[in-house]
């Protein structure tokens, strides 16, 4: 997925839950037909998806935290979640209404 625009503001769809799994010691994304176990970067990105921060904001914030450019990581990860329909984009929703 290359279609993630920097201005888009991702949030999880209402049926998705982000949760700590003590068994695996990892953050997991739960949805009706699948669960996704997140690695540390994925968990950090997921935690910032609130429908207010843009993709660019998230990349900037994490870039600062990790002291390296993460734009590509963020776009790839969010693209994967969007392809699995776990994410929606506040901006596009408004455009559709």
């Amino acid at each position: 997925m290359s279609g993630i625009r920097p201005a888009a503001r991702p949030r999880f769809r209402p049926f998705v839950r982000l949760q700590w799994d003590p068994v695996r010691g990892k953050q997991v994304l739960l949805a009706p037909e699948g669960a996704l176990v997140l690695n540390e970067t994925g968990a950090a990105i997921a935690a910032l998806c609130n429908g207010e921060r843009s993709v660019a904001d998230i990349a900037e914030e994490l870039g600062r935290r990790y002291e390296r450019p993460v734009d590509q990581d963020v776009a790839t990860f969010l693209g994967r979640l969007a392809a699995r329909r776990l994410l929606e984009f506040a901006e596009e929703q408004a455009g559709n209404a």
């Binding site: 799994d21 068994v23 695996r24 997991v28 739960l30 699948g34 669960a35």
Partner: peptide, 8 residues
């Protein structure tokens, strides 16, 4: 099941 890792 939870202890085995089941999530759903």
């Amino acid at each position: 099941a939870r202890a085995l890792g089941v999530l759903q």
